[in-house]
Amino acid sequence: MIDARAWTRAALIGSLWGALELSVGSVLHLSRVPLTGMVMSAIALACLLTLRRLSPVPGVCLVAGAVALVVKVFGIGGLYPGPLIGIGAEALLVELAMTALPRGAAAAMAAGALVFLWGPVQKLAMTRIVAGQDVISAGIALGGRAITAVGLDSVGVGWVVGGAVAMLAAGGGCVGWAAWQLAGRVALRVGVEQ
């Protein structure tokens, strides 16, 4: 007959995620707290991975993302494209990782790494759109100078950038693993461990 729980859970968890983006996200952003993006990505991972662990239905993360987007649209101060693109991309990346890989902590870690890597990619894309290619070129040139100034030019720019990406991915993987454990505790708490 009927079981609507995957949809209702997506509605409520998406709503919770959107409300946290509105409240915690806005406060952290306005307070100029460092690493706000990573904190919000961790919140997104906790919400999405919990939903996916409790209701392993393909597409459920996208529904939660759509709900969070709608809640965020009604935020104070109007519609800002950056966070909206971020929410949509996070939902899509978690959905992709959890669908493509066997369900478990490894898939959650991959989802975490993808979500954490998305932050710089989005920043780069938004900078390209708003400020143009010249700023990207200038950033690369200034980055090169900074690497030389701190004496890392012998290592090679590629290795420095690769190391930073690997560290970010590792950090995201750890957060994904922690979010999967949290999802397990939530599943136990509500008595629906799948």
Binding site: M1, D3, A4, R5, A6, W7, R9, L12, R189
Partner: peptide, 27 residues
């Protein structure tokens, strides 16, 4: 606790829909 509460409210909504025979979100 927050996530568990959100899940419970969602499950309540699903149960209420089932009790009233609403099948719009049926899986």
């Amino acid at each position: 606790v927050l996530l568990a509460n959100a899940v419970r409210i969602g499950d309540d909504a699903a149960a209420a829909a089932a009790l009233r025979g609403h099948g719009g979100l049926a899986h």
